[in-house]
C-alpha cells in the first residue's frame, strides 16, 4: 500500500476532525481509497471518513489492508509535516508498522516516521440508504457558531426544519436560546447558500456535545449537509469535492 498527498494540510485536518471523538481506529485501504468507520466510546455517534483514491497525487493498494492506528499518535506524526509538505504513507503486507514520509516541495527536507500498528477489533455497522425527510445545506461556519453559541445555555439542541427555515433551540439552568436560519440563495457565492429541502417537517433533539465534536471538521469544507428524518440518526456530512467526505451520524434523544 502506498498513497501520496501533495499537501499534508487535508490529512492533518481530517485527523483533527475525528481524533477527539474516536481514539483508536482501523483505516481500511482498498484500491478505491482509504476509509474508516468508528463509533465513539459511548456508542452514540458514528464517524465515516472516505478518502477516494482519485483525491491522491498517487495511490496504489495491491492487497486490501486494515491498519489499526491510534489517531492521537497519527496526529503527533502529522504535526511533524508542514502544511505544504507532501505526505507519503507506506505499508507492506504483514508488516506491523506504517511509514510516513514528508517532503518539502523544494525537496531540501525529507522526514520519515514509523508508527506501530495496533490490533483493533472493529465492529462495522451497516448504514442503510435513507430517504431523509429534510436536508439542509448551509455554511459549515454557521453550524459551528450555532452549536457553540447554544452550548452556553443547554446540553441539548432541538433542530426543527420547516419549509423555509430551520430552528435550533436549547434551554438550560440560566435560560433559553434559539437560532433561526432562513433559506437564502446565492448564485455568485454558493458556499454561503442555505438550502432547505423538506419532504416532511422534522423535529429532533441531540446532545450538543457531539455536534461540537462534529464541527471540528468545518476547516475541511465550506458547506455542511444536515440530513434528518424523525426518530432516525442525524447525518452531518462535510463534503470534500474530489477527495471524499466525513460523515458523522448521531443518535437522537428520545422522549421517555
Amino acid at each position: 500500500f502506498e498513497a501520496k498527498w501533495d499537501h499534508a494540510s487535508t490529512l492533518k485536518k481530517v485527523i483533527d476532525a475525528v481524533k477527539d471523538l474516536i481514539g483508536d481506529t482501523s483505516w481500511d485501504c482498498t484500491n478505491t481509497g482509504m476509509s474508516l468507520q468508528s463509533m465513539d466510546s459511548s456508542h452514540v455517534a458514528l464517524v465515516h471518513v472516505l478518502l477516494k483514491s482519485e483525491g491522491f497525487e498517487s495511490y496504489r493498494c495491491d492487497r486490501n489492508v486494515s491498519m489499526g492506528i491510534s489517531l492521537n499518535s497519527m496526529a503527533k506524526v502529522l504535526k511533524c509535516a508542514g502544511n505544504d509538505d507532501s505526505v507519503t504513507l507506506r505499508h507492506e503486507s504483514e508488516s506491523s508498522v506504517v511509514n510516513f514520509a514528508f517532503e518539502s516541495h523544494k525537496e531540501e527536507r525529507v522526514s520519515e516516521f514509523e508508527l506501530k500498528l495496533m490490533n483493533i477489533d472493529t465492529e462495522h455497522l451497516g448504514i442503510p440508504e435513507t430517504e431523509y425527510d429534510s436536508i439542509i445545506k448551509m455554511p459549515s461556519a454557521d453550524l459551528r457558531r450555532t452549536c457553540a453559541d447554544l452550548s452556553q445555555f443547554g446540553d441539548s439542541v432541538t433542530i426543527s426544519c420547516a419549509k423555509s427555515d430551520v430552528r435550533f433551540e436549547t434551554s438550560g439552568d440560566i435560560g433559553t436560546g434559539n437560532v433561526r436560519l432562513s433559506a437564502r440563495g446565492s448564485s455568485d457565492k454558493p458556499e454561503t447558500e442555505i438550502a432547505i429541502e423538506m419532504i416532511n417537517p422534522v423535529s429532533l433533539t441531540f446532545a450538543l456535545k457531539y455536534l461540537n465534536f462534529f464541527t471540528k471538521a468545518a476547516p475541511l469544507s465550506d458547506t455542511v449537509k444536515l440530513c434528518m428524518s424523525n426518530n432516525h440518526p442525524l447525518c452531518v456530512e462535510f463534503p470534500m469535492p474530489e477527495v471524499g467526505y466525513i460523515r458523522y451520524y448521531l443518535a437522537p434523544k428520545i422522549d421517555e
Partner: peptide, 14 residues
Amino acid sequence: DSKQSKITAFFVKT
C-alpha cells in the same frame, strides 16, 4: 425528559 439513544439501536452490525 429525554433519553439518549445509542447509534447501535439504528444501525445493525455487519
